[in-house]
Simulated assay, not measured.
Amino acid sequence: MEFVLNGKPVRFDGEPDTPLLWVIREHFKLAGTKFGCGIGACGACTVHVEDEAVRSCCYPLALVKGKRVTTIEGLSKDSSHPVQQAWIAEDVPQCGYCPSGMIMATVALLKRHPKPSDAEVDANLTNLCRCATYHRIRAAIHRASNEGGA
């Protein structure tokens, strides 16, 4: 299976039904994408496939053949992406488990809705935060949208 991972062509010789999460973490050793629930409910495993947010824990590898996959490591080399900077400025992370998936989901949201309303955030950002920092997450999303976040 050949695809592009964080801008580089890669190959994985494994079962096509292998969840993308395990290929990213175990084969390519990119640990930023987290395993949370394993059923696509929490969003800790969110990555982009062709700029769309997907839950990689239940996304079969066969669906990425010939496509572009971006993980949190591919978003920026130095946390300089506007959404990452907004997360830092708003002091969003506590335990550090959800931020990578939440940031990836937010980047995809801001590409579709550059200035999202609170209702659009609620409808489109379904990732869970164990520490319940939702008020800071919302503030970071609005900060990033004001700074050209996608």
Rank of each mutant, 00 (worst) to 15 (best):
L5M: 11
F12N: 01
D13L: 11
P16I: 11
P16F: 10
D17H: 13
D17N: 14
P19W: 09
V23H: 10
H27Y: 15
G36Q: 03
C37R: 03
I39E: 12
A41Y: 04
A44P: 00
E50A: 14
D51W: 00
D51G: 00
D51N: 13
E52Y: 08
A53N: 03
V54I: 15
R55Y: 07
R55T: 07
S56L: 09
Y59G: 01
P60L: 06
L61Y: 05
A62R: 15
L63N: 11
L63I: 00
V64I: 07
G66V: 01
K67T: 03
L75Y: 00
D78C: 01
P82A: 08
Q84A: 13
Q84Y: 14
I88N: 06
I88V: 14
I88Q: 10
E90P: 01
D91A: 15
Y97E: 00
I103G: 03
T106P: 12
T106G: 13
L109Y: 09
L109M: 14
R112V: 14
P116A: 02
S117M: 02
D118M: 11
D118S: 14
A119I: 04
D122H: 03
T126M: 08
T126R: 12
C131A: 12
T133S: 13
I141T: 07
A144L: 10
N146R: 12
G148F: 05
G149D: 06
G149Y: 10
G149L: 06
